[in-house]
Every structure is written in C-alpha cells, then in structure tokens.
C-alpha cells in the first residue's frame, strides 16, 4: 500500500492504495467519483475517459500512481457549479444518449477533441475521432450532432 496524491477537479486528494489500483478505481472507489464508468476494462470502449494533465486518457489502462502529482479532470469537474459545460448542455439538447453509460466518456473525449482540433468540426472528423468511444444504443447520430453543436458553443 502506498499514498497516491493528485489534484482531481481542482482539489488536492490523497488515498492509500495497492500499486495495482487503476486510476479509474482510485476515482470511483476511493474518491467516490462514480461518473467515470468502467465499460470494457480493456481500453476499447472509452467509458472511463478522463483528462490527465490536459490529455484524454483511458483511466482503466493506467495505474493511480502513474497520475501522482497530475491534474485530473473527470465528468464531475467540467460544469461550472449548477451551469452545465457547453458540451454537457449540447448532449442534453440534442439527446446524445440513450442509456447514458458511455456519456461521461463521450463528453470527456468530445472536450479533448475540441481542445485538439478546434471548434469547427465536420461530421467526418467527429466520427473518426470517436474511434475510441463505443455507444451500444444510439447509432452515434445524435452524439455527432451534440459534439458538433457543443464544439461551436465552446467558442463562447
């Protein structure tokens, strides 16, 4: 067991964990931030995507200690108080979900996509960039619409 410290959603946190603890387990089990989901646990589905030092990462495929000292943002950390993040708002507005299981990872990936690719994303780019996020309900149509609108809304 070892203490692992990082900044999660702007707050300094520490927990004592086994070296085997994955970042997603640290977030969910130790910090009770259960918005980050475990879908496949094999780094394919993207339900566990969070931002580590500004880059989207599959938190099921890194150990908590690899994030020692890092700044981590989860789905719980993107809204501004009661006001949803523009990407969250776009998913709500365009109904970019059905069961909602993949949604936190979709939104974290979408925000990362905008950070890397800018605010004007064509559908082809969005679909290509969503390669690492699986949704088993929607057929992606409304997710793509939501990301396109959310990306524009993030321009402010």
């Amino acid at each position: 067991m070892l203490p692992v410290s990082m900044t999660v959603n702007g707050k300094a946190v520490t927990a004592t964990v086994d070296p085997r603890t994955l970042l997603v387990q640290y977030l969910r089990d130790n910090l009770r931030l259960t918005g980050t989901h475990v879908g496949c646990d094999t780094s394919q589905c993207g339900a566990c995507v969070v931002h580590v030092d500004g880059a989207a990462r599959k938190s099921c495929t890194m150990f908590a200690w690899q994030a020692e000292g890092a700044k981590v943002t989860t789905i719980e950390g993107v809204a501004n108080g009661e006001k949803l993040h523009p990407m969250q708002e776009a998913f709500r507005e365009h109904h970019g979900l059905q069961c909602g299981y993949c949604t936190p990872g979709m939104i974290m990936s979408a925000i990362d996509m905008v950070n890397r690719k800018g605010n004007d994303l064509d559908d082809n780019t969005i679909r290509h960039e969503l390669e690492g996020n699986l949704c088993r309900c929607t057929g992606y149509h409304n997710i793509v619409k939501a990301i396109s609108a959310g990306a524009r809304a993030m321009k402010g």
Partner: peptide, 9 residues
C-alpha cells in the same frame, strides 16, 4: 494506431 486516447500515451 489505436484511437485518439491510445495515441496520446
């Protein structure tokens, strides 16, 4: 290779 998340690591 992989997907955008994989390519970042």
């Amino acid at each position: 290779i992989g997907d955008p998340h994989v390519r970042q690591v």
